[in-house]
Amino acid sequence: MPVLTTDPVHRTAAVRAAACTLNAFGRSYLGGHLEVTWSPPGSRPRTPAGSEYLAAGRAVETALRQRPVENR
């Protein structure tokens, strides 16, 4: 079973986005690790979940489009 992880570990929206994107591309058999880095403006301690979801999904999509299709 593939495992998706993030650093920091509390980025659950990023994990959900990665899983959905992998599934949409027919690559749900892949796992991976997302490293989420973000410097909050002012004193905001967290990224809004919607923004995190979109950014992670786009990052995974970009990575998939840059890699050759693997034969399974």
Rank of each mutant, 00 (worst) to 15 (best):
M1T: 13
M1Q: 10
P2G: 13
V3D: 09
L4M: 11
L4N: 04
T5Y: 12
T5K: 13
T5N: 11
T6G: 02
T6C: 05
T6Y: 03
T6W: 06
T6K: 02
D7Y: 07
P8Q: 12
P8R: 11
P8F: 15
V9G: 04
V9T: 14
V9E: 10
V9S: 09
H10A: 08
H10T: 05
H10D: 11
H10V: 06
R11C: 14
R11D: 06
A13E: 04
A13C: 14
V15L: 04
V15H: 00
V15T: 04
R16C: 13
A18G: 00
A19Q: 06
C20W: 15
T21P: 05
L22A: 02
L22T: 07
L22N: 07
L22S: 02
N23K: 08
N23Q: 09
N23A: 03
N23M: 01
A24Y: 14
A24W: 12
A24S: 13
F25N: 04
F25W: 10
R27S: 08
R27I: 08
R27G: 02
S28E: 12
S28G: 05
Y29Q: 12
Y29D: 10
Y29K: 06
L30Q: 12
L30R: 10
G31F: 09
G32A: 01
G32F: 02
H33E: 08
H33S: 11
E35Q: 03
E35P: 00
E35S: 03
E35H: 02
V36E: 01
T37Q: 08
W38S: 08
W38M: 07
W38H: 09
W38G: 07
S39M: 12
P40N: 05
P40D: 06
P40K: 00
G42R: 06
S43A: 11
S43V: 10
S43W: 15
R44T: 09
P45S: 07
P45T: 09
P45W: 06
R46L: 06
R46T: 14
P48A: 02
P48L: 05
A49N: 03
A49C: 10
G50H: 09
G50A: 09
G50Q: 05
G50I: 13
S51F: 13
S51I: 14
S51Y: 15
Y53S: 05
Y53V: 10
Y53G: 04
Y53D: 05
L54R: 09
A55P: 02
A55W: 06
A55Y: 02
A56F: 03
G57A: 04
A59W: 04
A59V: 09
A59H: 03
V60W: 00
E61C: 01
E61F: 06
T62P: 12
A63F: 04
A63I: 08
A63C: 13
L64S: 01
L64G: 01
L64F: 00
L64K: 00
L64I: 10
L64C: 03
Q66I: 14
Q66C: 15
Q66V: 15
R67H: 15
R67P: 15
P68Q: 00
P68H: 01
V69R: 06
V69C: 11
V69A: 10
V69G: 11
V69K: 02
E70V: 15
E70R: 05
R72H: 08
R72I: 15
